[in-house]
Design a protein around this nucleic acid. Structure first.
Lengths: 339, 339
DNA sequence: AATATGTACGAAAACGGTTTCGTGTTGATA
DNA sequence: TATCAACACGAAACCGTTTTCGTACATATT
């Protein structure tokens, strides 16, 4: 075993002081060429790398950013994460990730765990429970301590910080108009409980599009599903007891479930019923027919969030107001709608 | 802004020494009850939390583990990650994750980046390129430095360390026998290039099962697909120009693609052709028919890997030989096979 | 010859903790 | 009353860096 070498080791071996070694390796012109060459050669030979922890302590900057997401086995969040990681690495940052599992408590614990020096800032998407409880004290606490935070996708207006969101309302509007343009008149919405800010925005876009096109918003055509349960019966009943010729689903799973059950009932997609989902993941790409879907551009959201955060950490946005960036979703038209 | 409070701050405020504060907060009996109470109350009021970085430097242990995976937008890897994170958090560890994106260079860069003090050990699954090049010097280097490593799923016999793998050969064998028991005689395999150790094992299980059941291994019935390309034509041609009544696919995407194209050709699943895939993700759960699949129990692999690593870090396995743990896959029988 | 100017390096403090060791004060014991 | 242990605390070292400041020596300037 050949443990890592330190400045002190080099200094002792070459019979100079630690400060000389440090300066030599930074090519300081306080040190003679001769000494520098000697030290550099030695350091290179023994593959010297400065200890990151010591640097963090000294600089009070870790070059780590903490990411808290509600779920990791989830297409959208992983794409966002990929965007964050890609951008952060480019700027020399590591990413520490924690999963809140939709739990408020785990969100708080994870953030507190990381906030004691481990990271320079947070990127997070609120857990379901946090949104439900409307309890953001842990965020405010960290902001008060001077730790920058960027919220993405599941955000809240209660906290003043940089944010990255999707144009949820507008893309839902666009999706519904896409239905209407192909002659659909009975457009349904399958959504989650409204404490999710994104669900609310999507519902707004849905309703606005109907009204603007002279259609009535029928609350019977809005199905609200609990998050992680077996919803098959609710969905079946919904489509059997209502006249529906198009349905917008706020996520991919709902869309695929609906598609499957609709077909099971005996309807043909998109002839009888058109479907549009959110999240352009593999489920949408490989379904039969292919699912028309809202691409949320998670990579882009991640990159934007990381840029906002790192600029804030490095004081590049010193003094400027907090920024909310909007990522524009795209409607990917495939076989589940008439295009 | 109210920055974090340090031992020194408390000491100054209460007019005692830093050492007294430190001891008091650790409830040392060197300190009088009176002083302890005073210090604890003060610390609690100001929400004192020891600085993790300082502790890391002192203890030469960070309580961080590094995870390197080839891809994050990937069901299997995310489930493994979830297992790692869950177990690691229980034991007070954070998880730093980096994505190699199947690139050898990124794998090396990421590991070097983390190896300078940021983490106490690594859990990784080799990138495609690393397996292809058979270049594991970066791993050996870290092991020589005394940094423990646990490999999972995509492992190599060239490196001596703890490992967690799936019983790939056996489960492939079981899958093929499942086909044969329902009367299938022309079993095909859709796989990736063999430099993946897992693909090789699965191919072995496939071949062995055929031979053991008196069937011939026909190399025409083995389709090797490149990793991330549009393979539709290759697949179509494969099924059109061969007599096939069952197909084992080494991953979920291949399985879903095959299912879709097979149906497109006009065959019925599972009447004409049965399908089994690997990875029990959403694609398999929501396909039509539901896909019979090999559940790889990523959570369990992750937990096992994390346990092995942390035990190694904490010297609980001091001196013992390196361990290879095998996770037993399960065949989930659904509609794409005759059960 | 006295002074100024570089040059090349080392000592020490700092980051925020933990821990070992030393020490002044108190009360008990012989 | 002298001795000793127990108690309660502080000083200092240490982890691995960076950086400021001081300084010995050589050379240049007047």
């Amino acid at each position: 075993m050949r443990p890592k070498i330190t400045l002190k080791d080099i200094a002792k071996e070459l019979d100079v002081s630690v400060s000389t070694v440090s300066k030599a390796l930074k090519n300081s012109n306080e040190i003679s060429k001769n000494t520098k060459d000697k030290i550099k050669a030695f350091a290179k030979f023994y593959n010297y790398r400065p200890n990151t922890i010591a640097l963090s302590l000294k600089n009070k900057r870790t070059k780590n950013i903490g990411v808290i997401i509600p779920d990791i086995v989830h297409h959208f969040f992983t794409t966002v994460f990929r965007g964050i990681e890609k951008y952060a690495n480019q700027r020399g940052y590591n990413v520490i990730i924690c999963v809140s599992d939709e739990s408020h408590e785990r969100e708080v614990i994870n953030m507190e765990m990381l906030a004691n020096g481990s990271i320079d800032g947070f990127i997070l998407s609120l857990s379901a429970e946090t949104q439900q409880k409307n309890d953001f004290r842990h965020l405010q606490e960290l902001i008060d301590q001077g730790i920058p935070i960027v919220l993405f996708d599941r955000v809240t207006s209660e906290i003043d910080c940089d944010k990255v969101i999707l144009n949820d309302r507008d893309i839902a509007y666009e999706a519904v108009e896409h239905f209407i343009k192909s002659g659909r008149k009975h457009v349904a919405l399958v959504t989650t409980d409204s404490y999710f800010n994104v669900s609310e925005s999507r519902r707004d876009g849905f309703s606005d599009a109907l009204r603007d096109n002279g259609l009535e918003v029928d609350s019977n055509l809005i199905l609200t599903l609990p998050y992680n349960l077996d919803n098959d019966n609710l969905i079946l009943q919904f489509f059997q007891s209502n006249t529906i010729d198009a349905v917008l689903c706020v996520n991919e799973i709902f869309a695929i479930q609906c598609m499957s059950l609709i077909q099971q009932i005996g309807y043909t997609i998109p002839k009888d019923i058109s479907i549009i989902g959110f999240t352009n993941g593999n489920l949408s790409k490989f379904s039969n027919p292919r699912l028309t879907t809202v691409a949320q551009h998670g990579d882009e959201m991640g990159e934007k969030a990381a840029k906002l955060l790192i600029d804030r950490i490095e004081h590049k946005t010193e003094g400027t107001d907090f920024i909310t960036q909007i990522v524009k979703a795209t409607l990917i038209k495939r076989g589940s709608t008439i295009n």
